[in-house]
Design a protein around this nucleic acid. Structure first.
Length: 206
DNA sequence: AGAACGATCGACT
DNA sequence: GTCGATCGTTCTA
């Protein structure tokens, strides 16, 4: 199956965060169906120069070790004791940097993902709106925990591809959309990096 | 050994 | 808008 190669991730992190918008994240959980989402929100984190990055100043610890893997690996960590965040490692090996996945729209495996997010609770407009619009929600829906930390994104259980056809799904009609850049969420502690416009969203054209 | 904190979420006023 | 949950990581000593 066609998927983005490590070359795609071996690139400038901010550009890669933008380039990931509209692409298809594919996850095959153990014993589960193929889960697919179209990426709509990402953020860039760069250890070399970004106080918000866990590997700021090339800080290398047990937690940040995956950020030093070659580009095209997953960096997944526990946040606030209860949620997980998924990142794609970017830049040439040795430059610790990654793109955080913050939002996507469901494409395939909706029922499975819904059960992971909400159990048996009924479908409501509010739950529909808040289905996959946050990093913790995405990991919950995709069965991603620290057990998947360090996964190779050229493998078969977690990867990104350009179009639904790459994984045997019907095409999705094009819509008019715009990319917006803005400051990242939840990093007010990060000094000047707080204002870096490294958050990207894909939204319907007004 | 102990303490502080966090790239969040959902419930609630 | 506010607030608490919950625990691994990190730093200090």
């Amino acid at each position: 199956m066609a998927r983005l190669s490590s070359d795609f991730y071996n690139a400038d992190t901010v550009r890669t965060a933008r380039n990931l918008l509209g692409k298809y994240l594919v996850r095959v959980p153990d014993g589960g169906p193929v889960l697919v989402g179209r990426l709509t929100e990402t953020e860039a984190y760069i250890g070399r120069c970004d106080k918000a990055c866990h590997a700021y100043g090339y800080r290398r610890t047990a937690r940040t070790a995956p950020l030093f893997l070659p580009p095209g690996h997953a960096y997944i960590y526990l946040i606030y004791g209860m949620y997980h965040c998924l990142n794609f490692v970017t830049e040439p090996e040795g430059e610790p940097a990654a793109v955080l996945v913050r939002g996507m729209e469901p494409v395939s495996g909706d029922a499975f993902m819904w059960r992971k997010r909400y159990g048996a609770r009924p479908d409501t407009p509010a739950r529909r709106r808040n289905f996959l619009n946050g990093p913790g929600k995405i990991c919950q829906a995709l069965c991603l925990t620290t057990a998947e930390n360090g996964l190779d994104l050229t493998g078969d259980t977690l990867f990104v591809c350009d179009s639904p056809g790459d994984i045997g799904l019907p095409p999705i009609p094009a819509r008019r959309e715009i990319v917006r850049a803005g400051p990242r969420i939840g990093i007010d502690y990060a000094g000047e990096a707080r204002d870096f416009p490294w958050r990207f969203t894909l939204t319907p054209e007004p």
